[in-house]
Every structure is written in C-alpha cells, then in structure tokens.
C-alpha cells in the first residue's frame, strides 16, 4: 500500500486504510507527515468530545454507552482510548476495549486503543493526528478517552471541542475542589456512579466550586450518570449538544481551532528545528566533545548554544533582507 493509495482508500471508506493510517501516525513512519498533510483539507466535520477522570472512575464504560447512544441516532463513532505505557520497557496493556461491549462487532464504532508512549499529559503525541484521520474518514463523533488522570493531565483541553471530567462520589473534600488543574478544564462535570452514597455531596461540592466561575459565556454543567446502567446518558448527550451550540454561536469553536493550528505549527517547528540543530551538533564533532570542553571549563553551556545557533540565525536574517547589489 503506497501512501497515496492509503489516503484514497481512507477517503473511500476502507476501515483497513483508516487503521493503517493511524498506525503510521503512531509510529511516525516515513511519509506520515505528507499523509496527515493530505488529510487536512478533508477535516472539519467531526465533533470531538474528550472524556477524562481518575482511573476507575468509569470512563471506558461511559464511552461505551455514549458510543451506543450515538450509533442509535445513526451517527458513526470513533473512539481513541489512551492507556499508559511502561516507563521501563515501553510496553503497555491497553484494556479499555474490554468495556466497549455494547458496540462489538460494529465496524462503525471504530475503537482504537493507544499507548501514551511516554507522554505525561494524558494523551499521546499521535492523538491529535489520529483525530484528523477519523475526521477525514467521515466519522461524525470522535470520543477521546484520556489516560486515567490525576490532577494535572490537561492536554485534552487543547485537543477536544468539549471536555467532560468524570468525578467519583467521595473523591475528596472541598479543598480538593479549589485546586488548579483538571477541575478547571471541564465544560461538563459528570458525577458518575451517582447511585453510590456520597454522590449528592459531590454534586454540591462541584456546584459550589463552579459558583462565580464566569470565564466566558459557558457555565459548566453537572450531570449525574450511572454508566453501568446507562442512567443519565441521554441528559449528558443533550448537554454535549448544547455546549456544541454555544461553541458554534459564540465563535469559540473557530477560536479553538485557530489556537490548535497555531500550536500545531509551533510543535512541528520545535521538533524540526530541534532535529536540525542535533544534526549540526553532530557535524561539529558531537555533543560529548562540547561536554568535555564544558567540564574542563574551557567554555560553558550558554556559549556553546550560541555558537551552534548563530549560523542558523544568520541564515534567517539573510532571508529577510536579501543582499543588495
């Protein structure tokens, strides 16, 4: 399969081509950048929903019920479920698929398990580009389930249009609710396992936390669900829809997309520039040689960095002001 065929096959709706595209993105196989570049013009129609929360909060089970509900409406669903990778071997056990019992055997619920591959923000580097592949394929709703999050895995807010944060009953006192991080990023707060004792108190704590939060015109909503039974799923989907309406009518959706594109360009440039400079270091005898000289106090890290970056800087200046003749 050449990459040109791959794009054509993906656009024509071949599941296998979509799967292989995501693999190439994950592996950063040669040619993957052109592949993603070719997909860009076909994106922009999928609605992306992020689901985050602590391990065992019920994310996967909730995602399963959401997928089922969307399928019942006749929509196609893509799920990206991220699980952690081993810091020692890089290996991973990706177990979210087990919970996706309502939609097994159905190809139009396309579930892709993804290892975080060492990333710490709750997603993997490939997640954003994999969403594009789903989007270009024509999938209506993309649900991204993060790694079981602690307090600070907030990458999802830059990736999804709507973020739902799952909170378990009895997950701490009101001081926990004051903290920065994950509780700041929810457009919707889902108190899952709402049939457990303490759910009422958690709802109350959350609403106190949300009181007086008037950044932007959207006030985060709280929805109670029991994902094992499917209770509250309908309300949750309605809430997602009203958030979507807000995003579109307020111009927030467009603003988010613009920020995302800008971030993407910057990330790519950082990677590229970093690698160009790595190459330059090698051409100048390798990093060890510089370190030797730094250790011997012949030079210092700042001077070395200056030395290496200066030629690049000079090139860019020359580009801007062509020499006059």
């Amino acid at each position: 399969m050449t990459d040109g065929d791959l794009v054509a096959d993906l656009l024509s709706g071949e599941y296998r081509a979509l799967a292989r595209t995501i693999t190439k993105i994950e592996n950063r196989s040669s040619g993957y950048r052109e592949l993603v570049a070719d997909l860009h013009e076909h994106t922009g129609s999928a609605e992306v929903i992020g689901i985050t929360g602590s391990p065992g909060a019920g994310k996967s089970t909730l995602v399963d019920k959401l997928a089922k509900a969307y399928r019942d409406e006749g929509l196609t669903v893509g799920v990206i479920a991220v699980d952690p990778s081993s810091p020692y071997t890089g290996g991973a056990v990706l177990g979210d698929r087990i919970r996706m019992a309502s939609t097994t055997g159905d190809m139009d619920t396309f579930v892709r398990s993804m290892s975080a591959r060492g990333q710490l923000g709750g997603l993997s580097t490939a997640t954003g580009d994999a969403i594009k592949a789903f989007d270009a394929f024509g999938i209506d709703r993309v649900i991204v389930e993060t790694v079981g999050a602690g307090q600070n895995e907030v990458d999802i807010v830059r990736t999804a249009d709507t973020v739902a944060v799952l909170v378990q009953p009895e997950s701490g006192d009101d001081i926990q609710m004051l903290k920065a991080g994950i509780l700041e990023i929810g457009d919707v707060f889902v108190v899952n396992k709402a049939d457990m004792p303490g759910a009422d108190r958690t709802v109350k704590q959350l609403s106190e936390m949300l009181e007086g939060r008037e950044n932007g015109e959207w006030t985060p909503e709280i929805v109670e669900t029991v994902s094992t039974s499917g209770e509250g799923i309908e309300t949750l989907i309605e809430t997602f829809t009203s958030h979507r309406t807000f995003l579109e009518s307020s111009g927030t959706l467009e603003a988010k997309a613009r920020t995302r594109y800008a971030e993407e360009v910057r990330t790519l440039l950082r990677e590229d520039a970093g690698r160009l400079l790595e190459g330059e270091i090698d051409r100048r005898g390798g990093i060890e040689e510089f370190v030797d000289r730094i250790s011997a106090k012949e030079t210092d890290p700042y001077t070395v960095a200056d030395e290496i970056i200066t030629p690049l800087e000079r090139c860019l200046v020359e580009e801007e002001t062509p020499p006059q003749r």
């Binding site: 990778s85 081993s86 890089g90 056990v93 698929r97 087990i98 055997g105």
Partner: peptide
C-alpha cells in the same frame, strides 16, 4: 507488555466477528 509490546486484551467470551 514486559517485552515492550503494546497489548490489547479482548476480555472473555468474544465472538469471531468481534
């Protein structure tokens, strides 16, 4: 996993089409 592979575990009682 310990060998560095990414393992997707299906759970029990799957049908061939799953």
């Amino acid at each position: 996993r310990d060998a560095g592979f990414e393992v997707i575990y299906s759970g029990l009682h799957n049908a061939p089409d799953e």
